[in-house]
């Protein structure tokens, strides 16, 4: 099942991404409507993180194209925010929570201008929304996992974007933090933002998301959550990789074969 929408906020067209010539995403093709909370669901190694990294231009595309707001990423960057996995940075870096959140302002105003009073106000406001105001001057090395995650979310909020792409924001946070993050995401949706979240817990996915992508190196389904969550589709997603597909992938790596002829 792949439900395409008119006038999508995000369109991924025939996207193939390879690591060392081995495709980790095969011809992924979908559209996402405005103002939804979207889950990207799939087993470990399904290419969920790779998908949003490809959307953000962090990994090279083998083929296909991506359109955001019917435009290229470069022309709409200020409207798009990316929240990396918490573990992707070294939290021992000498910086305070406020320093990290202020990084969210860098994109908006260019890096050569000084941080203004308004930027700080926005940063504090963002910290307030994730319940981290008391931690503004705290060293990031002293944060717990949930606090690190909320710091990253505050940085994303400070970007004042319209489309948010979040890589595993619920990984390694406690239940209370997860709840508060979900509340925040719902609130953001109410403001008309579109939020795409990489997630791997099936149980909660059905409650959280309006729209769901099922992914396992290839797109299994894309559509409204209640339509996508069928036993059949879930089994297809979690029932392991397609044997032939993985074999071809291995062969391409072995022969260092390109994803497209060109």
């Amino acid at each position: 099942m792949n439900i395409q929408v008119d006038n999508p906020v995000l369109e991924v067209h025939d996207l193939t991404v390879s690591y060392d010539k081995k495709p980790v995403l095969w011809d992924v093709d979908f559209t996402i409507p405005y103002g939804n909370l979207v889950g990207i669901i799939g087993p470990n190694g399904a290419g969920k993180s790779t998908l949003i990294k490809a959307i953000m231009g962090l990994v090279p595309k083998g083929s296909g194209y991506i359109k955001l707001y019917d435009d290229s990423l470069d022309s709409v960057r200020h409207k798009v925010s990316y929240v990396p996995q918490r573990e992707s940075v070294d939290w021992d870096f000498p910086a305070s929570v406020l320093d990290v959140v202020l990084m969210g302002r860098y994109g908006k105003k260019g890096l050569l201008k000084r941080v203004s009073k308004k930027d700080k106000e926005i940063a504090y406001e963002s910290l307030k929304r994730v319940n981290m105001l008391d931690f503004a001057s705290r060293q990031i090395s002293q944060l717990s996992g949930g606090q690190q995650q909320r710091t990253f979310l505050a940085r994303a909020l400070a970007q004042e974007a319209d489309l948010y792409l979040m890589d595993e924001p619920f990984a390694g946070v406690d239940a209370a933090t997860e709840r508060s993050i979900v509340d925040l995401l719902l609130e953001m949706r109410k403001e008309g933002k579109t939020i795409v979240v990489v997630h791997h817990d099936l149980q909660s996915a059905i409650d959280y998301f309006d729209w769901t992508l099922l992914l396992n190196t290839r797109l299994v389904a894309s559509g409204p959550t209640e339509k996508v969550f069928t036993t059949e589709l879930l089994q297809e997603t979690y029932g392991g990789k397609l044997t032939l597909l993985s074999k071809i992938g291995d062969l391409m790596k072995e022969k260092q074969f390109p994803a497209r002829e060109k």
């Binding site: 990294k53 953000m56 231009g57 962090l58 470069d74 960057r77 798009v80 925010s81 990316y82 990396p84 992707s88 940075v89 070294d90 870096f93 910086a95 990290v100 990084m103 860098y106 994109g107 890096l111 940085r155 970007q159």
Partner: peptide, 19 residues
């Protein structure tokens, strides 16, 4: 200074804001 601290802390984020 900002650019260098940004790429030292979080290079992926730096890329996504167009640096």
């Amino acid at each position: 200074f900002k650019q260098f601290s940004l790429i030292s802390f979080d290079v992926h984020f730096a890329k996504t804001i167009g640096l």
